[in-house]
Design a protein around this nucleic acid. Structure first.
Lengths: 115, 115
DNA sequence: TAGATATACAACCATTAGGTTGCATGTTAG
DNA sequence: CTAACATGCAACCTAATGGTTGTATATCTA
């Protein structure tokens, strides 16, 4: 299934799966949050958590696969930067769900008004 | 970590994990969408997908664990109803992330304006 | 009451996820 | 140039996920 949210946003199931899956982990959400504030190197990020460097690297790979962060080289470091676009996609999908529900409520209201 | 989004919404990591995890599957998103429009029995839902009844039952259990749907008995059937409250929680968290990013942009703008 | 329908749930299986350690490679600083 | 630092990546382990089948139980309906 492909969801058309608005004129410039259409999302495949796979893409949405990856975004929500990536957000379903507290460490990954923390990485997204921090790198939205300011870009950070992988080492900087790894130092913040109790897991190994390699584990943090894997989390970043997952986030990158979902489009939630990007990486770019700076000397021997890789700087990680949060990407608000992927977050907006997920948020827009949830907005759509909320509107569906709102629509149901309005239909119920209309039905009540009729009788 | 516990996130305080607004005066009446605070979310534990576990709760957020469960919500996003539950949404990271196309079948489950479809169930949420349909049951937001109108409540449906488990059999009704199961008939729509190519997987077994038991598999659909498991998906519903996951959604229920995340608070995304509720079940209530009606005779021998169990009716499943989408719960917009859990969706709102997830959406509000993404809103917060978008605001963080917006804040960064504004700081950069201010910095540029200074120089 | 018997049979059909709706659900619950346990046991099992294959795949994925999230973690580890170890090693290779590129880059910077003395 | 060498040592230290930053990263990439493979191999491995365990637990969780998403599916299956099979069985049990409750509720209608004829």
């Amino acid at each position: 299934m492909v969801v058309y949210l608005d004129s410039d946003t259409n999302l495949s199931d796979d893409e949405v799966d990856r975004i929500f899956r990536a957000l379903a982990d507290a460490t990954r959400r923390d990485i997204v949050r921090r790198t939205l504030v300011d870009e950070e190197s992988i080492s900087d990020l790894a130092a913040r958590y109790e897991i190994t460097f390699a584990a943090v690297q894997k989390h970043i790979t997952v986030l990158q696969g979902a489009g939630l962060v990007t990486k770019h080289r700076s000397g021997r470091e890789r700087l990680v930067r949060g990407n608000p676009e992927a977050i907006r996609k997920a948020r827009t999908l949830l907005d759509a769900y909320e509107r569906i529900w709102q629509g149901r409520i309005e239909q119920l209201d209309a039905l009540l008004a009729e009788n």
